[in-house]
Design a protein around this nucleic acid. Sequence first.
DNA 1: GCATTGTGTGTATCCGTATTCAAGTCAACT
DNA 2: AGTTGACTTGAATACGGATACACACAATGC
Lengths: 340, 340
Amino acid sequence: MNDRLETPKRPMTSRQLAALIGVSQAAVSRAFTPGSSISPELRERILRGAREFGYQPNAIASMLTTRRTNIIGLVVSDMSNPFHPAMVERLTRGLQRLGLQSLLFNVTPGARVEDQLIAIRTYNVDAVIVLSATVLSERDLAWAVEGRRAVVLNRLTTQDITTICCDTGLGMRALVDHLHAIGRRRIGYVAGLTRSAIGMERHSAFTTRLAELGMRLTGTASYESHSYEAGWKGALDLLAGKPDAILFATDILALGGMDALREAAGLRIPEDIAVAGFDDIALAGWPHYALTTYRQPIDQMVELTLSQFTAGPAPAPAHIAIPGELVIRGSTQRLGDTTV
Amino acid sequence: MNDRLETPKRPMTSRQLAALIGVSQAAVSRAFTPGSSISPELRERILRGAREFGYQPNAIASMLTTRRTNIIGLVVSDMSNPFHPAMVERLTRGLQRLGLQSLLFNVTPGARVEDQLIAIRTYNVDAVIVLSATVLSERDLAWAVEGRRAVVLNRLTTQDITTICCDTGLGMRALVDHLHAIGRRRIGYVAGLTRSAIGMERHSAFTTRLAELGMRLTGTASYESHSYEAGWKGALDLLAGKPDAILFATDILALGGMDALREAAGLRIPEDIAVAGFDDIALAGWPHYALTTYRQPIDQMVELTLSQFTAGPAPAPAHIAIPGELVIRGSTQRLGDTTV
DNA sequence: GCATTGTGTGTATCCGTATTCAAGTCAACT
DNA sequence: AGTTGACTTGAATACGGATACACACAATGC
């Protein structure tokens, strides 16, 4: 594992630059360290020299002395749900703005999770962002973030870690209320990963609101996956109960469900059956789907996450739920209303 | 930029472990270095001690002495085209298998690209994988990979860098031949990024084959983007020319195009017009789209990429084109054939 | 004028591991 | 027994930059 790649040619060191300019190595180091004790003139002279001779500080060496890597571990487990790449893209860009790098960990369920995350420790990652519903057990989670700042997105945990989620209660309530408002009374539910905390929360928030409005659950299905196929099959499973609306735990499930309802069951959406999802991924806005959904406040979630990694003492771990926004599109419509 | 995160508590060092066990620090180091000169007994004793006391080697320190980081820079610029997350996911997993880490660079067109990639140098990334059609200029590309191993995926370059692409010529030929074989003679083309080398290659391969088969180009459109919306608009632009088939430079364009043709233009696919794409992203297989396309040999591309990073001297830069596979689905069908 | 304070600089050392070098052990062989 | 050589091991040093410390020097106080 250690002789994988050969050594590239060596770049200039601070000592070499110092010798070239006629200053001490310490001065070079100070020139590149904001807030260190150095006169503006000397700093300028050194930075000019650095530009001229092409010197750039070696981040590895400075990691060793400062014990800070400016690297954030980004733990993901499923890039096939478009929600995740969208988050990863925004997180990475935000981190870059702060001068932080993203080390990507793509965790697979099979192998021992600790082995897959070992580099979080050996590389001395400064902080960890977890964007993975179920692959990490509570134990894995604790192990992975032990001793460093961390943010867990869209997942609940009993650990002492900051979690940032879209407000599931508000979201489900808005969705159910909307379906109720447009006259739907026989609502089915397609769950995704039922063993994930957020999955359970969405499900229970759904049934709670249903009960509050005096409706009975028309049916539930789940194939333990957030995938198009799982949504497809789940939707068809519910048809026996003759639902007039189906709520899906995630958008990607809803898309599969919609296609199943239309192509396999020959139903019209929203005339015969209304459909709603949760997340508001880009595809939900495509005209063919026009999926009513609850938009996760991605930008706020990212901003809040980043704010955990700025200077100062680490904020106390908190569990934050941010309200999202109900996005009504063509997949839901008042019963009996034929204008589109 | 340097006082962003506070120092975490210090883990055990090889010296401390050595003292605990009663061996030299060098022995500890050797115990963790495959192929180094140490007796199996001593190694076993040290590894046992390491497990007992929870010692793990500090990768940062070893980077400093070996000048190898085992970090690969992964340069991406557009996660909204599902093809890219799919590649990133496979690449990252493959690298993990080899004990390599992925540092993710999400490059945006606006700001100076060099600034966004500075960490490739300061972090001493061992190698670079570029998965970005146009955001990096040839100059940026040369700067980014200078002096290290690199693979550029799905992009051509005049630089002395290994490139790995799906064979555009074969692909376009297969697609055009297929459209011809099912009786289509008025074929339009929706391009994506026309200034990217691969975009130009796809376009020219398309027109070349068209000419060889004695067909005239029925129309071209482009909105300089690989997006659903660009495909939507591009498809509508072509309708004036009354095409009986439209070939899209990428699948994501084709999906937008199909929805436009069906929802906005009221056409039936494939009865009124056939549609084909290029890439074979997951969505292309969804029943609603059932998009005929040319599948990029993702797995082979990833394997070949990884093979560049295994031990031994760096392979000479080569330009590799791998044949893909024509995937025929419902979006294309013989003219006049009404069986689905 | 001298003590005081503050600023800017260089020297020396440290960060944690890999590796070179020399020394030591032991088996095999002449 | 003596020599050779293979194999282990520890001591010492190097990797490149950050920083504690000491010191030089200017500005300030009385």
